[in-house]
């Protein structure tokens, strides 16, 4: 990657609560996102995707690790000095109902962003709100309405307009289409792609739907219990997965094609509690090829080619099969 990355995360860790109930939500996560790039974060519920998003925006404080945005370490900045981050990084939320204040009109929801950074006042403010609504495909006249007067897809557009109001460089989209119907989902995905191109947006795209991630992202990071299992270009991760969990995830996602092979290989068991993650490799309780070594030591990310890494003791592609498998 030639341009220096817009976002660099290293050793990011977040624990919630205290020892008997300590939740290891994010554990030693590192990645970088180049300007204009879209990095997908996939993983099942509780894998720490949203927590990473909130950490990057400094809505919560990291337990340890660094977050470098546009070259500056923002991981320990006090709230007062985050004005620039708030202006340059924004979030789009999963729940189109809960993410808009039901008591405010659309005009005030979007206008608030303009006011917070003194971006537009008076007549210019109204004009700008109208522009933003039109950018996301809503008529400017809808600005006097309340959120409940819109459908889920339209609300999600309002949420996107709000995020765009401050003209951010980075957008963290936390499952922006998960709550939407397929036909509406398609509209919002296309809108996000348009906006990405138009404004040269960099994105952290969080989703549990591999098809959506594959469509939207240049690179993908696969998370399990707060750790990165595999990270690489979309093509590498989807077509040449190296980590057993990535393979399992791909195999478990039903394909909308009746001729595709049915789900046969399946992960057994439940996702362990993040309060008591397994020792060694966190995936070992469900991994079909786990060995004693997996319980003993934590596998570090290892390279599987240019910009493709995975965290497993064994590299199946190179015949490193564990004896037990």
């Amino acid at each position: 990657m030639s341009a220096s990355p817009l976002l660099v995360v290293e050793g990011l860790t977040k624990h919630f609560g205290r020892t008997p109930h300590l939740v290891r939500a994010v554990e030693d996560v590192g990645f970088h996102v180049a300007p204009g790039e879209v990095l997908g974060l996939v993983g099942e519920s509780g894998s720490g995707k949203s927590t990473i998003g909130r950490l990057v925006l400094r809505l919560i404080d990291p337990t340890s690790g660094t977050i470098r945005f546009a070259g500056e370490d923002i991981s320990k900045r006090p709230e007062r000095q985050l004005k620039a981050l708030r202006r340059n990084a924004q979030m789009v939320f999963q729940d189109p109902y809960a993410s808009l204040n039901p008591r405010l009109r659309v005009r005030d929801i979007i206008g608030e962003a303009l006011d917070a950074h003194r971006l537009a006042g008076g007549a210019r403010r109204t004009e700008r709100i109208g522009e933003l609504l039109e950018t996301v495909g809503l008529p400017a006249t809808h600005m006097t309405r309340f959120p409940h007067e819109f459908s889920g897809g339209q609300r999600q557009r309002i949420g996107i307009a709000r995020a765009l109001a401050v003209e951010p460089k980075l957008i963290i989209a936390d499952e922006p289409v998960s709550a939407l119907d397929v036909s509406v989902q398609a509209q919002v995905l296309n809108l996000m792609q348009d906006l990405r191109q138009r404004f040269g947006l960099t994105m952290l795209f969080i989703s549990h739907d591999l098809d959506v991630v594959e469509l939207m992202c240049d690179r993908i990071a696969v998370l399990y219990l707060g750790r990165i299992m595999e990270i690489g270009s979309t093509d590498d991760v989807v077509s040449r997965p190296r980590h057993p969990y990535t393979r399992a995830l791909l195999a478990a996602s039903p394909k909308a094609d009746p001729d595709a092979p049915k789900i046969r290989r399946m992960l057994t068991g439940d996702i362990p509690s993040p309060m008591a993650p397994p020792s060694g490799c966190v995936f070992r309780t469900r991994c079909p090829m786990a060995t004693e070594e997996c319980a003993r030591s934590i596998p570090q990310l290892r390279s599987a080619g240019e910009d493709h890494q995975f965290a497993c003791h064994y590299d199946m592609a190179h015949g490193e099969r564990p004896a037990a498998a």
């Binding site: 909130r54 925006l57 809505l59 985050l82 004005k83 708030r86 202006r87 990084a89 924004q90 979030m91 939320f93 999963q94 729940d95 809960a98 993410s99 808009l100 204040n101 039901p102 008591r103 405010l104 608030e112 962003a113 006011d115 917070a116 950074h117 949420g159 709000r162 109001a165 401050v166």
Partner: peptide
């Protein structure tokens, strides 16, 4: 804890406004 409060924080809306508008209204 609702996302719209988080959204307001992410936008850099002042704590006073979050309390007096977002929370008080609700």
């Amino acid at each position: 804890e609702l996302p719209f409060v988080e959204a307001a924080r992410a936008l850099g809306v002042s704590t006073r406004r979050i309390l007096s508008v977002h929370i008080l209204l609700n």
